[in-house]
Nucleic acid binder design. Structure first.
Lengths: 235, 235
DNA sequence: TTTTATGTGTGACATATTTCCCAGCCTGCA
DNA sequence: TGCAGGCTGGGAAATATGTCACACATAAAA
């Protein structure tokens, strides 16, 4: 985990080597990237890219979280929540189709970004980058497939349980006999994530807490006490 | 559209240039691929790769259709239906994670296939291939996102309507004032595709037919008469 | 401090959907 | 021909979920 305070102006190079997309690049290549990549901080609640704008940049999250969502006729669907190390906005640059979703920062977020030209240059001239991107996209397809399966086959309890387990996997921090999920989410967010109403998700959370499977800490973060117990709801 | 009967033993090279994954390759490179790629016909109802087997080959559909699905505790979820030109089985080769779904041929299907080593060699040594694969995966993520949004925000009518429109886009054939969907699907398949019960999908189909938006031809293929009418159910 | 906004927990009621069941209609096959 | 199996269509009851409405707590803002 990279801490915000650790990030000085000049150590971009060091950070780059920790990013999946740049794995396998030579120091010289990393230097090139460092020269062409910029940093920017977005305050919480900023719309990084708005829906339907032609994509003009790729972002890499160095610290913070971003919610990828689609709003349509009052209803909000959250496709995913990205965190440090994740790539964002690359799809528009790849296929030149407009943005299909919006990205909203959930907390103050530090990003690395490159313009379209730089990204394409990278892709064409630094072979490991294309390779890494293939892996990244492949992993994303796998995650999407899990979400689809969940939405198509589980009831709300199951979908919430699965989502919590997925968050534990991605954003979990081990504490005494439990896993704390770093991200702060409201029950409303959770509802938009699993395609259910807030009311129903509330019922699920109350239920899961009664069972002792889950609890909430002072800041509203979820704490998972029994992964296996949750998994039972996922078929 | 490549017709089964047109495929002679020696024209693999010609076919290759029509495949997205091989776009941009030189004739020499295409020859190399032709030498290392094999053909195989699967009869309808064959399980091309079974869930949880380590992936050992990539397949490219030359003619036919394949259903990608996950079966769990009696419930079947269809993630997608692939047709000619589509790639299949590449994910296990990319990230070495086991298969996450099964692939079942819906009709007699002709495939091109390569073993893991060949595929990786291609990826590392023929730059356009990696580039193309990135595009292909990117498109797949986009499709997945649409499915997720649909499952999370639409009722069964809407999900069925959207699925029919998606099929019209991918497998549609223009006929007089309408679009015929080439693939033969039962209402049960449609149900597994949109995460609903067969009964409910049946009601939807009866309803859509009453409205004159959709009909079925003698072979059971769906015919869409009014795209805009269907789109109205998708918010 | 008061006010405002935001998030949680809950009841009543309306809808949507599933499940189980059965009938009729095909088609392929013995 | 007759039977078996798969597919469509639909009835009835049971569940699951959504919507609307409100009370309450807490935290941020004025």
């Amino acid at each position: 985990m990279i801490k915000m305070t650790e990030l000085k102006k000049d150590d971009t190079r060091n950070i780059l080597s920790d990013i999946k997309l740049f794995e396998g690049l030579t120091p010289t290549q990393l230097d090139w990237v460092a020269k062409h990549a910029h940093r920017r901080t977005f305050t919480a609640g900023t719309n990084v890219m708005t829906i339907e704008q032609p994509g003009e940049a790729v972002f890499i999250i160095l610290h913070g979280t971003v919610k990828i969502h689609i709003e349509q006729s009052g209803r909000d669907v959250i496709l995913s929540i990205l965190g440090s190390g994740d790539l964002l906005g690359e799809m528009s640059l790849i296929d030149s189709v407009g943005r299909s979703a919006s990205a909203l920062t959930l907390e103050n977020t530090l990003m690395l970004w490159m313009d379209k030209t730089t990204f394409n240059y990278l892709l064409d001239n630094f072979p490991p980058v294309a390779r890494n991107l293939v892996k990244i996209l492949s992993a994303r397809v796998r995650l999407s497939d899990q979400v689809i399966q969940s939405l198509a086959s589980l009831d709300v309890n199951g979908r919430v349980a699965r989502q919590l387990l997925a968050f534990a996997e991605r954003y979990g921090r081990e504490v005494t006999n439990a896993v704390q999920i770093r991200i702060i989410l409201t029950q409303g967010d959770l509802a938009d994530l699993v395609g259910a109403s807030r009311k129903r998700v509330n019922q699920t959370m109350v239920f899961l807490k009664e069972q002792g499977l889950v609890s909430t800490d002072a800041d509203g973060r979820f704490i998972i006490h029994d992964k296996a117990g949750l998994a039972r709801f996922c078929d």
